[in-house]
Design a protein around this nucleic acid. Sequence first.
DNA 1: ATACATACC
DNA 2: TACTGGTATGTAT
Length: 756
Amino acid sequence: SVLNHKQCESYCSDLLSRIALNDNKAGMEGLDRDKINKIILETSKGSKFYENELKKEQQVNQRIEKMMEQKARITKEQLKQAQAEVDKLTCELERSRELGRVIVHVDMDAFYAAVEMRDCPELKDKPMAVGSMSMLSTSNYHARRFGVRAAMPGFIAKKLCPNLVIVPTNFDKYRAVSAQVREIFSEYDPHFMPMSLDEAYLDITEHLEERKHWPETMRTYYICDAKTGNDADRSAAESERDELSPVLFEDSPSSSPSLSGADRKAEVFGTSAEEAVREMRFRIEQKTSLTASAGIAPNMMLAKVCSDKNKPNGEYRIPPERQVVMEFMKDLPVRKVSGVGKVTEKMLAALGIVNCDQLGQQIALLSLLFSGTSWHNFLHISLGLGSTCIERDSERKSMSTERTFVEMSDAEEQYSLCRDLCQDLAQDLQREGLKGKTVTLKLKNVKFEVKTRAFTLQYAVCTEEEIFAAAKDLLKVEIDSVSPQPLKLRLMGVRVSGFISAEDKKPLQRSIMGFLQKGGSDSGSFTQCAGSVLKAEEDSDGASFLKPQATEMKVPSVSDYVNKPAVLKPSFKISTQVSESRTLKSSSHDPSCNEEKPSTSISVPLVETDEDGDFKTPFFSHRTKTNGKRSVLSKKKMPVCESSSKASPTTHNLEAITEMSSDSNGSSLTCPVCSQPQSTDDLALFNRHVDMCLNQDVLLEFRESHPPVGHSDEPALKSVRGQQGSSPLPPSKKPKVLSTKHTIDKFFKGNAGQKV
DNA sequence: ATACATACC
DNA sequence: TACTGGTATGTAT
């Protein structure tokens, strides 16, 4: 009602901005959009995917409506005041405008497709794309004429272009080519920042400074005869080729002997930025037979826009002058700016903002409608400002793995898949030496609705068992929440984040084995433990973990929790301490607890930790194989404490610990729960055993007081038994994975910029 | 801290 | 038949 007709039409008329062709990218000019959209629509209509996209679209429209209502409530006064603030900030930004750096954004043209075409001449004159029937990564320019583009499913692309050739991805190859290209980048900026396999930012300011004094010979490159391009690079082309993976060249024409100097055509490049970049692109093409486009500008935001301007195989430069920058921005559609996606574009369009000039005119209004970070960003964009320094790749913040598959409804299968994901993720984490405290489970059901559920542990984890312990609980809550209906999933993913910093990980490499084997002489007796709390754990409840009187605590039984709402809090807090009077703590999930998360604390006298008390070696793990021998400990000694999320984690000293720490008998360890000597030296195995015992105790209790009654609990119980008993989860029917992995840059990005 | 959405390649 | 996977960050609670 508050909307005028025009405003309404600007977004209501088009409910399909998410489905329709995205012709934002290069190579998509002047095609028959209506015809293409009609085909896309007809192919998509009625699918689950389409329905979900419609729903999301409605959400965006609602967001826009809310925004318009808010806009309608803005007074002239408010706007005037906002304008004053904006003007002030604009002034400051203008004063600090930095035009002195020469930033380059280089982008390989239709990278994956170009590599495949290079290696298979058959494809040269055909419309082709890289990917699968389910999803395309890239298309060549020929295919783009049909509206076929990246991120489009192959089966739709086929409707648009029945002759489309779809080539499966070949990441090893793209990585190898990327490495070649990056070698060239590093000669112009050793600190260049790779953004993906085919894209990077460079700061060539220093290079240009030096280049000014270079003789022509240093700026001369030779074109080699054939289009193999493998010989042309001035520096060591031959040796480079030998170092490369043979697959790269197995299809290439066998390298002809180098042409003599007289036969070579030389090209001398100038000393300007354009020339330097043209030289770089020339070398890339000579070395890989692939073309790149580039943008040159005083900052990254502009350089990125510029690299798109003369794509493919072109470059564009914005000279370092304010006037020219502003002129360039004036007609630039906001959508062209990196970070402005289709939703932002649509919201701005609803306000009548399409290009950056209009954006600049409306900053005051935007400051009243958007968050601080958002409108500041808009202001920067409208002024043509952007980052002027290519920062070192910052530390990774999360790591994840996810998989799409045919509809999966069986809980056992889901748990099993979850474990597989955890295993993969654990491997990746360990490869990078990372441990994180937050585990996130991602689910997408067959209606394409996505859910994420996260859980932050007390300590950082990196093993399959630890991650799975958390992930499977998250999964269980979701399964239970729809029970007795099954979860019908099409995707599952697991992520670990909240990494502990590098310094946190380093310091303590103290060997827990050495400690154990020494026996109890100087180690944690209870009195020592109790009296030497250095850093009392301030948990949310503020309770110290290591109170001697904790042994006296009332011990609730598992049945106390059964009918309470599920509480997702870390359970099994294990309070530990080393002899140097340091207090340490850890926790983990209790895999045996189906209904609730009882929290249990025990004190053990030793553990390997880092400075923050995070476990260096996981003390408890959850995929345990042991005899199912019931704990000899009574409830009083094996406390299970409050289920409430606010409940104090309490500390209980296990008498069995005395046995353990006084067992100076070589390396054999005694389980503090079941009192059985363990034959292993391997702490991980020992931990598993202890963990198992604790869980077994709780589980048995639970099952005694609650004989299995219904479907609802049954699968989970089974699954828990599976984890605990000598037989793991039933062998999984391996889900059929639908799509190929499209991005594996995570193994590649990092480090690449730091060489040289 | 969690959930969900947006964005990028 | 069939609409990705990995990471970061913004927005809202």
